[in-house]
Simulated assay, not measured.
Amino acid sequence: MQRDMKLGLIGIGAMGMAMAKNLRRKEFQVHVRDIRPEAEAEASALGMTASPSPAVLSAQVDFVIVVVVNAQQIDEVLFGVNGFTRVPVRDKCVMLCSTISPEDTVRIAQRLAEHGVATIDAPISGGPSRAEAGTMSMMIAGEDAVLQRYANVLDALSDKQYRISATIGDGAKTKLVNNLLAGINLVAGAEALALGMKIGLDPHKLFDVICASSGHSWIFQDRMARALKDDFEARAFAHILTKDITLATAMADNAKYDTPLGDAALDIFRKTVDNGWAGLDDAAVIKTYLKGTT
């Protein structure tokens, strides 16, 4: 595997930091940029190079991975005053891993193409532990020649790569469909567990039964295990999945497709955020049920 390729990673939150750690462990040269000094300090202590701006980072790397929250932040780090494209970037590549709308993905790719930069549309899923282990899922869209050129990086990041198509935007579409279902499953699981508690069942025993029975889903087991420990420290912020389901239902609206379950799940997520739990783990949707404000 090629190790001399210099990689940049903009946005080292939970997922971005985990990805950076994985790449550094596999002996890639990793440059990072984040607005939080503590995150950059942690990365530097692990042998990565922190850059003062995306523009400085872009001059030092061949391939940039963007893992920020939304399209507005992507625009800022790529095209802003100190953005990636403020220095010569022709023949480089940007991989978009954030969950954003397909329209924004296409728009950003078109702007990058004007600078001679290739784009890989590659949203990610699986959580920080899988990202650090190199076992997260990647939903990848992009030209075959570009994907082949950076295959060593993709292989280092994930052993679960799903090549959706050559059409930029199809990765984003796939991620939104997945996250719509994840949100529905999570809300449904929280609703069921809260019902069991309301009628006097032992929630731990009920949890074990569901995890071994037909009501099981991965996100139920992962998130409700935290909830039962009253552990709502954010691994996946409630406001992030709220944003994702909002994007997914908007995508459905644009396709003139009804998503009644998605709309209901979004309503619960919005109430969770309104209750002041936006910064908690998305397992906090059960708190909305237990509070009785649904």
Results as ranks from 00 to 15, higher is better:
residue 15 M to A: 06
residue 69 V to P: 11
residue 231 D to K: 10
residue 270 R to E: 12
residue 285 V to Y: 00
residue 262 G to Q: 01
residue 227 A to Y: 00
residue 135 T to C: 08
residue 52 P to S: 13
residue 175 K to T: 09
residue 75 D to R: 14
residue 202 D to K: 10
residue 26 K to S: 11
residue 162 Y to K: 06
residue 176 L to M: 13
residue 205 K to W: 06
residue 173 K to E: 12
residue 93 C to S: 13
residue 250 A to K: 12
residue 217 S to D: 10
residue 197 M to S: 13
residue 248 A to Y: 01
residue 200 G to Y: 08
residue 34 D to V: 04
residue 120 I to W: 01
residue 193 L to H: 04
residue 22 N to V: 01
residue 89 V to M: 08
residue 8 G to A: 07
residue 122 A to R: 00
residue 125 S to Q: 09
residue 292 G to L: 05
residue 4 D to N: 15
residue 195 L to S: 07
residue 157 L to H: 05
residue 190 A to I: 02
residue 202 D to L: 10
residue 218 W to V: 13
residue 102 P to W: 01
residue 73 Q to K: 11
residue 246 T to E: 15
residue 190 A to S: 14
residue 79 F to H: 04
residue 171 G to W: 04
residue 49 T to Y: 12
residue 8 G to V: 02
residue 31 H to S: 14
residue 225 A to K: 13
residue 38 E to I: 13
residue 17 M to K: 08
residue 43 A to H: 03
residue 29 Q to S: 15
residue 80 G to E: 09
residue 144 D to I: 12
residue 149 R to I: 05
residue 90 R to M: 13
residue 6 K to F: 02
residue 51 S to W: 04
residue 220 F to S: 03
residue 141 A to C: 11
residue 102 P to G: 02
residue 90 R to E: 15
residue 69 V to E: 11
residue 237 F to Q: 10
residue 164 I to Y: 09
residue 149 R to V: 08
residue 209 V to W: 03
residue 169 G to P: 06
residue 39 A to G: 05
residue 31 H to M: 06
residue 143 E to W: 01
residue 207 F to I: 00
residue 126 G to T: 07
residue 102 P to A: 01
residue 161 Q to S: 12
